[in-house]
Amino acid sequence: MRVTYIGHSGFSVELESHILLFDYYEGTMPEFDPAKKLLVFASHSHPDHFNREILKLADVYPDVEYVFPKDIRIAKKEQRASEHFMRKRDEITVGDTKVKSLRSTDEGVAFLVRCEDRIIYHAGDLNWWYWEEEDDAYNRMMRGDYQKEIETLAGEKIDLAFVVLDPRQEEQFYWGFDWYMRHTDTKIVFPMHMWKQYEVQDRLIGMEVSEPYREKIMRIREMGQVFEL
């Protein structure tokens, strides 16, 4: 399994006969094997998660399908390949791949993907968003909503996960990541949504709270970094 960190929350995952592309918006797009099926995911319409350039991949690769939440709108003139639009808490099958959506605590969805013999989770903007400037009611609601969604992953043996670790949250930057790792069975996790402040990974790894799972964290240092797993 080859994972490429493209930028921000954008990753590609290359399996034996499939390539999964998640939330591309910036960085150099890898060259993919045209003999493999390319599944392109965008978790929501925010510009740091969805770049319309991904629609042009269908002009280059012969076997492409797209999986989007319903908040992403594609004009007929932009349509080039099969597109699947998911509701929140939805399940669909794309060829031999099964996709489950979770309800985000921001816009759109998170994805749980069963492809070949792997289970892969991409959070999109599903996170425990705690902001000091918000009132207590908002922050309590955010905590409850996030924890409720992560509970839906109970019993899943997740091979690979991409989870928000956002330095803008200041002292609460790790809450969502930590809760996810303590309440799921995940083998390998990539932090994302770090706004190029990669030192936030080292900050978490140096904290006592990460001791139960820090060896599972893959450390990102630069855009375009490739991981052979």
Rank of each mutant, 00 (worst) to 15 (best):
H84V: 07
R87S: 10
G27C: 05
H46Y: 09
V164C: 11
H8Q: 11
R168K: 09
E149H: 03
P212K: 09
K100A: 07
W128Y: 12
G224S: 06
L165D: 00
Y61T: 02
L102D: 00
F32N: 12
F11L: 03
C115D: 06
F22I: 09
G27N: 04
Q201M: 05
A123H: 04
G10F: 01
R221H: 14
E156K: 08
F22G: 09
I74E: 02
V67D: 02
L126M: 15
D117M: 05
R168T: 07
D23S: 09
K77Q: 14
Y213E: 01
F32W: 10
W179Q: 13
Y174V: 15
L21T: 03
E14D: 03
E65P: 11
E14P: 10
E215H: 14
Y130L: 15
K157E: 09
P167Y: 03
R219G: 06
E133D: 14
Y61G: 03
K36S: 04
F68K: 06
Q79F: 14
N139E: 00
T184W: 00
K98Q: 12
S43I: 03
E228I: 15
Y121N: 06
E91Y: 13
A137M: 13
D23L: 07
W175Y: 10
V109H: 06
E107L: 12
I74T: 06
P167T: 02
R87I: 13
T152E: 12
V113Q: 02
I74W: 06
V40G: 04
Q79I: 12
E26T: 12
G144N: 13
W179A: 13
D125V: 14
W131S: 12
N127I: 09
F68D: 01
R87G: 08
V163L: 04
A42V: 07
A42N: 05
Y138H: 10
E78S: 15
A137V: 15
G144R: 11
R103H: 14
E134T: 15
G108C: 02
A75M: 06
W131Y: 15
R219F: 04
P212I: 07
E228K: 12
M142C: 11
R73K: 08
T93Q: 15
F41K: 04
I158G: 01
V99I: 04
E228T: 09
R143V: 10
W179N: 07
F68R: 14
D117H: 10
V226W: 02
D48R: 12
I205C: 11
W195P: 06
P34M: 11
L20G: 01
E208P: 05
A42R: 01
Y25P: 07
E208S: 11
G124W: 00
H183G: 06
F162G: 02
R2L: 13
R2Y: 12
D59Q: 09
K36A: 04
P62D: 07
Y5L: 01
Y198N: 04
I188Q: 08
K88H: 15
V13W: 05
E208V: 09
D90C: 05
I150P: 02
F85H: 13
T4L: 02
H46R: 10
K36V: 01
K70P: 10
D145R: 11
H46D: 09
M218Y: 01
F227Q: 02
M181L: 04
K76W: 11
E14N: 04
N51L: 05
P212R: 10
S210V: 02
V109W: 02
I150D: 00
R2E: 05
R89L: 06
V200S: 03
R182T: 13
N127K: 13
E156N: 08
